[in-house]
Design a binder for these strands. Structure first.
Length: 255
DNA sequence: CGAATCACCTGATCGC
DNA sequence: TGCGATCAGGTGATTC
């Protein structure tokens, strides 16, 4: 479900909520996420919440907890208990932070003592860092949409923002081997789409929610994803399966 | 090695 | 109303 803008939105909110707080207990209600949630997780003062790709890293006490929202993972501050609540994090001030994930593609694990984790080892550059250059999109023969969703090429782009970036860049998702000018345009559009989506608090197509339960606003700005009419030219949007994922594109705006 | 396919899991929706 | 088929924003294993 969540791509970079959604994870970054959650990061900001968790960081604010946990600032100057102390975790006194991790209450594990059910352990069966993508991998089992460890029985023992670090407690103590929260030093901060960082993000790498679509992963969240919570620095707590003398350890770091790695979290991925998968498709349907949501963090919420509430004391009630709901179906699919996997973990309840008890804070020293009495508040409770809950991780809820119906589809269980999420992840909650302990990082190595050095703060790293195998899941982070082969990730490409952050799209909003100078390390993400257009030449990252060269040298692959797969459809370009599959290439930009490959987390080894560049991180943070999922199905929604891949479609939106390609619409903005005027490139059809099934195209292979782009020209240098097209790679340049696409890299620029990936950055602008993600930046604007972060500013809008992410997109809530289905399950994504802020920590306070509110929806993102960027879905109002989407031009092709899950649409029948192109938000740019008004023409009919085509839907095709690429790399096993539903893909939307505009034959008039994209070549 | 890269590319393509599938599996993981629950819930919502659609057509009959 | 009920039921089966299909699909959903991610990732990783497997196969060719």
């Amino acid at each position: 479900m969540p791509e970079l803008p959604e994870v970054e939105t959650v990061r900001t909110e968790l960081d604010r909520l946990l600032a100057h707080q102390r975790i006194i207990r991790w209450e594990r209600r059910r352990a069966d996420l993508r991998t089992p949630i460890p029985a023992k997780l670090p407690i103590g003062p929260v030093h901060g919440v960082r993000r790498r790709a679509k992963y969240l890293l919570l620095a707590v006490g003398d350890g770091t907890v790695l979290n991925h929202l998968g498709m349907t993972g949501v963090w919420a501050e509430r004391t009630t208990i709901q179906p699919h609540d996997h973990v309840r994090v008890h804070l020293a001030d009495g508040r409770v932070l809950v991780f809820n994930d119906p589809r269980r593609f999420g992840l909650l694990e302990l990082c190595r003592p050095d703060g790293g984790h195998a899941a982070l080892d082969h990730l490409g550059p952050e799209p909003l860092s100078p390390a993400f250059t257009p030449d990252r999109l060269a040298g692959r023969r797969a459809p370009i949409k599959t290439v930009i969703m490959d987390q080894r090429v560049v991180v943070g782009v999922g199905n929604i923002y891949a479609s939106e970036s390609l619409l903005r860049a005027g490139i059809r998702p099934m195209r292979r081997r782009l020209t240098a000018a097209e790679r340049e345009r696409l890299a620029t559009c990936i950055r602008s789409v993600l930046t604007e989506a972060i500013q809008a608090g992410g997109s809530s197509i289905d399950d994504f929610r802020h920590v306070n339960g509110l929806s993102g606003r960027f879905q109002q700005t989407l031009l092709v994803y899950n649409r029948t009419q192109c938000g740019r030219c008004g023409g009919r949007v085509r839907q095709t399966t690429i790399g096993g994922r539903s893909s939307w594109w505009c034959p008039a705006c994209q070549r």
